[in-house]
Design a binder for these strands. Structure first.
Lengths: 256, 256
DNA sequence: CCTTGTGATTGACGCAACGTCACGGTGTAA
DNA sequence: TTACACCGTGACGTTGCGTCAATCACAAGG
């Protein structure tokens, strides 16, 4: 059975370029060249290619493969043993890298949360007076000094899984908010879903027992008042997202 | 504090070529160029380089690192998470490769043993008549048909650990043989040690209960008679190794 | 007979992240 | 002044191909 370069490339799942390259570096020569100068491969070449690809899979270099296949008394056992060592060393290195990434991830996550937290703290102080006017004494009690302290703890102790879960919820909220914006209705199901998800999301960051309808509505209002939050929401969803969320939360907190 | 390119390269453990390259691709520009056209780096560059090298360690590409360091609002957390995924995928692939190498190693080991075994079988048949003349009927009984069958099983069932252990013993034997050759005395301690190690080595390949002083001495004699074995021993140790082993075994089997 | 489509050829450049010359200028200690 | 270490800029090599580009080869259809 004879194969053209394309047929062999399809058969073996490699590109014709690869076969031409293997020809050039004398790794796999065609059986013969026909009158038109085309490469013609035979059964023997198919077998050889299979071998080559097998060793390539095992990450031998083409040069090594060439040596293995060209010298019949090649010490395959030794080569495999050595390759085994190499791969194991590589695996161990990867494991160390993964550990490093995980550590970095954890500390970075911590920093990010702390950063967000600091922003939020600053924001809260800034806005506390306004909120008091709007929602009365109650919110001050909720945001009292000890709450802040607990909150700090909460942030710091947030596990990686919790952090990821909170991110997932936030994303789902963004999607619902997008739908709500399309419907342009803060009372719609997606809008109310978004408000509920927002509440769930908050619970990852607010100390236990801190949640109240008023605080929730107040925060949503802040999203509209503070341009940093507004632009954050608009960058994540679309223009008007902060307003939509505020309106949705207003309805949500009024009804629950 | 200012640093020349060499000083920074020594400080960070990278080549000057690397620093010039990083300059060229705008990854790390020197603080300024002095009157002689030399690159001058400052404290800020040292920090930057540390960061670059850290991310390079984590196998980010230089392009990715460039993006990370040039845009201040880069999503580091996301990038790290993604890198974590990549590294894990890579690790899993490596683990599969290692498993494949191990399988190949096992089957290849099996083949090698079988091949050696076949050679040995052929050799035995060839030499059986001679041995009978030399050592009488007893050796025929030892090498009877059922023993061959058991032997086959033994070879096939040899575990990887056993195989490696046998190789270690063989190597130790070679070393003792070398010392014996230096002393040129088959009765010397190293020579007798080699003979004992040779017996231990044989026990990995001979079926249980097959060993006898006569068979051992007979095999050692074959090492001298058959040029293939002789040259094998000479390639592994030195000229005269097969003879030395035969003589040592002769003494060993006479005394034990 | 001509066109069209498909597959063949060689040759050249590009990629990632540098290593390694070669050739020439600079700075400083002896 | 000389030696020697250091600086600079090219330019080519590495590995295993991907991706053009330009040019043939061959079979089918109008």
């Amino acid at each position: 059975m004879n194969y053209s370069i394309k047929m062999l490339s399809d058969l073996a799942g490699v590109s014709t370029r690869t076969l031409r390259y293997y020809d050039k570096i004398d790794l796999l020569k065609p059986d013969f060249i026909n009158a038109s100068g085309y490469r013609v491969y035979g059964a023997k070449q198919v077998d050889l290619l299979q071998q080559i690809l097998f060793f390539r899979e095992l990450r031998f270099s083409l040069k090594e493969i060439h040596e293995m296949l060209s010298s019949p008394d090649f010490n395959l056992l030794g080569a495999l043993t050595e390759q085994h060592k190499k791969l194991n060393a590589e695996k161990e290195r990867l494991e160390r890298l993964i550990a490093t990434v995980e550590k970095t991830l954890a500390s970075q996550k911590g920093e990010t949360i702390m950063t967000d937290h600091e922003k939020f703290e600053g924001f809260k102080k800034e806005k506390l007076a306004q909120n008091e006017k709007r929602y009365g004494k109650e919110i001050r009690k909720k945001y009292g000094e000890d709450v802040v302290e607990k909150s700090n703890k909460q942030f710091a102790n947030l596990s990686k899984d919790d952090y990821e879960a909170s991110m997932a919820i936030q994303n789902e909220m963004f999607q619902n908010l997008q739908e709500a914006l399309n419907l342009n209705d803060p009372a719609s199901t997606p809008a109310q879903k978004a408000a509920d998800l927002h509440r769930q999301w908050l619970c990852y960051f607010w100390p236990k027992g801190t949640y109240s309808k008023e605080a929730h509505a107040g925060l949503a209002q802040m999203y509209v008042d503070d341009p940093r939050f507004t632009s954050y929401y608009e960058s994540k969803v679309a223009k008007g997202a902060a307003k939509m969320l505020r309106d949705a939360v207003k309805i949500y907190t009024a009804n629950v």
